[in-house]
């Protein structure tokens, strides 16, 4: 099966596991897309903020690790669920 675009896969991961954190998403993507340099902390954070700002995902909780690193968990919104049809049908 061909790979999904990375941002699509981020939304799919959040749909598959409610409460998944940004760190978990990054680890899964690094394994699935080993040759894609765009799979790094900064770019995946950008995708997550972008998905959140248009209302596809919501934040569940945020903790601060080592006084600097944010660990945020997410769930998919109703609007995001509606857009999953574009991912599941691919």
């Amino acid at each position: 099966m061909s790979k999904l675009p990375i941002k699509f896969r981020v939304l799919q991961l959040i749909n598959q596991k409610k409460g998944i954190t940004n760190e978990e998403i990054l680890e899964i993507l690094k394994f699935e897309y080993p040759r894609d340099r765009v799979v790094n902390y900064k770019d995946i954070e950008y995708y997550l903020i972008s998905l959140k700002s248009v209302g596809l995902i919501d934040s569940i909780s945020v903790t601060l690790r080592d006084h600097s690193k944010l660990v945020e968990s997410y769930k998919i919104s109703d609007y995001g669920m509606n857009r999953m049809k574009y991912i599941n049908n691919n």
Binding site: S2, P5, I6, R35, V38, Y86, N89, N90
Partner: peptide, 12 residues
Amino acid sequence: REYARTLKTRPG
């Protein structure tokens, strides 16, 4: 690589 992946999707 995202060009080809994206063009296969409906949003693409």
